[in-house]
């Protein structure tokens, strides 16, 4: 079979590529989703009065704004640019 060694090497490279890229994408996206789910839950509202108080509303709005900004930045900015900016 022509290119027997080459075919084997390419097959190994493809498997490594799929495993590395696939696991980074899947684990990364799962982590991102977990982070998004966890952040708003840090707000614990103990009673309705507190929840309706101006301070709590302000905090909730701040967190929501932060989450939205984070989501937007993940969509708009490429990591290379964000790393440079940081």
């Amino acid at each position: 079979m022509r290119f027997k060694k080459l075919k084997t090497t390419v097959a190994i490279a493809l498997i490594i590529f799929i495993l590395v890229i696939g696991s980074i994408v899947i684990i990364g996206l799962v982590q991102a989703a977990k982070n998004q789910n966890h952040t708003p839950q840090r707000l614990t509202v103990t009673n309705v009065n507190q929840a309706n108080s101006p301070q709590v509303n302000k905090n909730t709005n701040n967190v929501q704004t932060q989450v939205q900004t984070q989501q937007q930045s993940q969509i708009i900015f490429h990591p290379m640019i964000r790393t440079m900016a940081s």
Binding site: A13, I21, I24, I26, G28, L29, Q31, H78, P79, T83
Partner: peptide, 24 residues
């Protein structure tokens, strides 16, 4: 194939969701 792998490895220790975004 190794080009994106090496480049993304730079971001893996920083923050994995960032690395995932880099590949998509």
């Amino acid at each position: 194939l190794s080009h994106p792998i090496f480049l993304v490895l730079k971001y893996v220790p920083i923050y994995l969701p960032l690395a995932a975004t880099y590949l998509l």
